[in-house]
Amino acid sequence: MMLSGKARVAGVMGWPVSHSRSPRLHGFWLREHGIDGAYVPLPVRPEDFAAAVRALPKLGFAGANVTVPHKEAALAACDEVSPLARRIGAVNTLVCRPDGSLWGDNTDGFGFLENLRAGCPGWRPEAGPAVVLGAGGAARAVVAALLDAGCPQVRLTNRTRDRAAELAADLGGAIEVVAWEERRAALAGAGLLVNTTTLGMTGAPPLDLALDPLPAAALVTDIVYAPLVTDLLARAQARGNAVVDGLGMLLHQGRPGFEAWFGVRPEVTPALRAAVLGDAPA
């Protein structure tokens, strides 16, 4: 549909941002619901981020998503943030309020859990310990979401142990820091294995992890979606584990922001997945 002078506008702020699939994601929903609105890429250098964020309400934006490397800076730039975003230490969703103030939230954990529930309906967070590889921003959101959802224990391992220890100290709760060299042993008795590292991503080194101690009933997921089926997922599937790819986390995390900006709660569908992947018209 044609945009009017009353169109609501949102976007995604990152540096770089040209690789982001969020414009495809939100553009699909805007067309699907016939909304008078637009969602645009906003390439912002780190040194310009604070000023750019404060300009959003002045430019009439409804809000924005925030991606690498700005999620931590976004937390500091907001007037108010959700308790969850404060706990994670990062904001990925900004809402411009009528009074011109900025509210920030983190929907990555929501997207992660919704993706698992949709991709493997029988999975339950309380079913057993989760092994989480990595200790970056995504891992913080994933671990917080798992603990809040009732996961009895998170076994956290990272190539740099200090980062994992820092994450555990910040979030608290039932987190056991495991040395990277002990990652294989940590799989014993686990109900979930999550890779939040870039290992296995297109152009990155492979993830070196033998899966033999992992129970056959465990669910395996990788938040990477390029490639869509990583080597980890392929090997897990070959041995009989249920697997969930990482694309759905991106799709589901976008739903709360879209609702806040455009007034409609969108759904994740096969047609949406195809459009975001580029298998159908974007």
Score class of each variant (00 low, 15 high):
192 L>W: 12
218 A>C: 02
121 P>H: 12
41 P>T: 09
36 D>P: 04
231 D>M: 01
25 L>T: 02
261 W>Q: 04
100 G>F: 04
45 R>D: 00
205 P>D: 14
98 P>K: 12
214 L>V: 07
98 P>H: 13
5 G>R: 05
245 D>C: 06
224 V>P: 00
4 S>R: 08
212 D>A: 15
149 A>G: 04
256 P>K: 13
3 L>A: 02
75 L>Q: 04
245 D>P: 10
24 R>N: 01
54 R>N: 01
52 A>W: 08
147 L>Y: 10
29 W>M: 07
30 L>T: 02
121 P>V: 06
106 N>C: 05
67 T>L: 04
33 H>F: 15
72 E>G: 00
77 A>H: 01
226 A>F: 08
167 L>D: 06
116 L>M: 13
149 A>H: 12
73 A>T: 01
83 P>N: 11
67 T>S: 14
89 G>S: 06
219 L>Y: 08
56 L>K: 12
113 L>K: 11
117 R>C: 01
41 P>K: 13
44 V>I: 15
86 R>H: 13
276 V>A: 06
104 G>H: 12
106 N>P: 08
251 L>Y: 09
270 P>D: 10
52 A>I: 05
223 I>T: 13
158 N>R: 09
282 A>T: 12
25 L>S: 04
250 L>Q: 06
37 G>D: 14
199 L>K: 04
111 G>K: 10
201 M>H: 07
169 A>E: 15
2 M>Q: 14
280 A>T: 04
264 V>H: 11
54 R>A: 15
67 T>R: 11
2 M>G: 04
169 A>C: 03
12 V>W: 10
160 T>D: 03
240 G>T: 08
109 G>H: 13
217 A>R: 15
194 V>C: 05
155 R>G: 03
190 A>S: 14
186 A>H: 13
138 A>K: 09
231 D>Q: 14
139 A>L: 05
129 P>A: 15
271 A>K: 12
22 S>T: 14
85 A>Y: 11
170 D>L: 08
244 V>M: 04
173 G>T: 11
144 A>S: 14
130 A>D: 10
231 D>L: 03
26 H>T: 03
63 G>T: 07
143 V>D: 08
119 G>D: 07
183 R>V: 02
229 V>A: 13
227 P>T: 09
196 T>Q: 11
172 G>S: 07
235 R>M: 00
213 P>A: 01
203 G>P: 11
234 A>N: 02
144 A>K: 05
185 A>H: 08
84 L>C: 00
58 K>G: 00
4 S>T: 15
89 G>Q: 05
191 G>R: 12
195 N>L: 03
262 F>K: 09
156 L>F: 11
272 L>I: 03
101 S>T: 15
19 H>K: 09
24 R>H: 10
97 R>P: 00
263 G>Y: 12
251 L>T: 03
97 R>T: 10
221 T>P: 08
70 H>F: 06
250 L>M: 04
188 A>L: 13
153 Q>H: 01
224 V>D: 00
1 M>S: 14
137 G>P: 12
2 M>C: 00
193 L>Q: 09
88 I>L: 06
268 V>G: 03
9 V>G: 00
